[in-house]
């Protein structure tokens, strides 16, 4: 076969593969948008579900989702950043650090339903916290922690060496260099990582179904139970109660996650040039 034909075939395959990817994404989004757009209204967003078929809105589930996500973020951010600083800046690079990284990566790939089961056993039952925002946030944090830690570590490593040298050259100690130069310089990327992991938490179902409960409730205290959007969506669809509302919820969920992702991009763009 001539080189030209081989080239054309290879290019064609790449084209088709790319096209399939875009088509799949477009179909999924399109399907949800077409089916859900009719449901979306201020009333749907800001009122409570009513009656046996859960007509009305989804407001308490939105609050539950955002509540648990924010709580998980508050829990993991300091831990993830401190751990990443230790790994990237202080730990002697060797087998131990390699093991810690491998453990973090493995933790990130544990099936979320296993994490949910673990959260149920540890937080809901053994620790006696019960179905609550706190139990769900703690279980979610296990899922988010390795993601945020690894992105933070990458962000710290991406700070150019010569900027650190400038700081050391002025007589800064290691901690002064890390806290005043490296972390601020890495912050846009760290925050991007946090936002992206937040998007993951918003869409998480398996973990929260085991730990937050299912009661439709507007959570106030971290010990209150609730029903996140994903679980609401699951129940509406699987029990055939109200399919249009399920699509509406799905669309809202996608908009929320898209919002987080766009927010992360916007944040990174804006801070790239200081």
């Amino acid at each position: 076969m001539s080189k030209r034909i081989t080239n054309a075939i290879a290019l064609g395959m790449l084209w088709i593969a790319a096209l399939i990817t875009v088509a799949v994404l477009g179909t999924v989004i399109g399907y949800v948008v077409i089916n859900g757009i009719g449901e979306l209204s201020p009333r749907f967003i800001f009122t409570w579900p009513e009656g046996v078929a859960a007509e009305g809105g989804v407001w308490p589930t939105i609050v539950s989702t955002l509540y648990v996500t924010a709580l998980a973020m508050v829990i993991i951010t300091p831990i993830a950043i401190l751990a990443a600083v230790y790994l990237a800046e202080y730990a002697v690079q060797g087998r131990l650090v390699g093991t810690i990284r491998f453990a973090a990566d493995s933790l990130a790939s544990v099936p979320s339903i296993v994490m949910g089961l673990f959260g149920l056993a540890l937080f809901v039952e053994a620790a006696g916290i019960g179905f609550s925002m706190l139990s769900a946030a703690l279980a979610l944090s296990f899922l988010m922690l390795p993601i945020v830690m690894r992105t933070t570590e990458e962000a710290i490593r991406a700070v150019p060496k010569y900027i650190r040298w400038g700081s050391y050259g002025l007589g800064a100690t290691k901690w002064q260099t890390v806290s005043r130069i490296v972390l601020p310089a890495a912050m846009p990327r760290i925050i991007t990582g946090i936002i992206l992991s937040t998007g993951r938490a918003v869409g998480e179902t398996a973990v929260v179904i085991y730990t937050m409960g299912q009661a439709i409730n507007l959570p106030v205290s971290p010990l209150d139970s609730g029903r996140p959007m994903t679980v609401h969506l699951y129940l509406l669809a699987m029990e055939g109660i109200n399919l249009p509302a399920a699509y509406g919820t799905a669309l809202l969920l996608m908009i929320l996650i898209l919002g987080f992702n766009l927010g992360a991009r916007f944040f990174l763009r804006r801070n790239r040039k200081v």
Binding site: Y162, G166, Y168, L170, G171, I181, P184, V274
Partner: peptide
Amino acid sequence: DLRRRIGMIFQQPNPFPMSIYDNVAFGPRL
């Protein structure tokens, strides 16, 4: 302490990602 007495300029200009003022004030603040 030694590096406070012996300053260094590098091949690649390496201002910190902060304001001009804060760059210069960095050492004194330390």
